[in-house]
């Protein structure tokens, strides 16, 4: 298991899983989101290429109401 920090919360996730798998788990694959992996913005085409490691910091953001 990999211990990751997802949107500020500690989350346990299977090792050797990709960012795409993470999105799948949270039912976000069809939603408009963007991912930051350890402070670096990940282009969508790389979601399947990047695997989660212990202590990774992930931010998943989306659009919310705002002025």
């Amino acid at each position: 298991m990999a211990k990751i920090q997802l949107n500020g919360k500690k989350v346990l996730f299977k090792s050797n899983c990709s960012l795409f798998d993470l999105l799948k788990k949270y039912k976000l694959t069809n939603k408009k989101v963007a991912i930051e992996h350890n402070g670096v913005i990940v282009p969508k085409i790389n979601y399947k290429k990047i695997n989660l490691k212990n202590n990774d910091k992930i931010e998943i953001v989306h659009f919310i109401g705002g002025g």
Partner: peptide, 24 residues
């Protein structure tokens, strides 16, 4: 329309989000 960028609520997977209601 303007929109803000914030963290996804990972605790509630089923909650609707703004872009479910606005067609870009």
């Amino acid at each position: 329309v303007t929109v803000a960028v914030r963290r996804v609520n990972i605790l509630d997977k089923k909650k609707p989000i703004l872009t479910d209601y606005l067609n870009p």
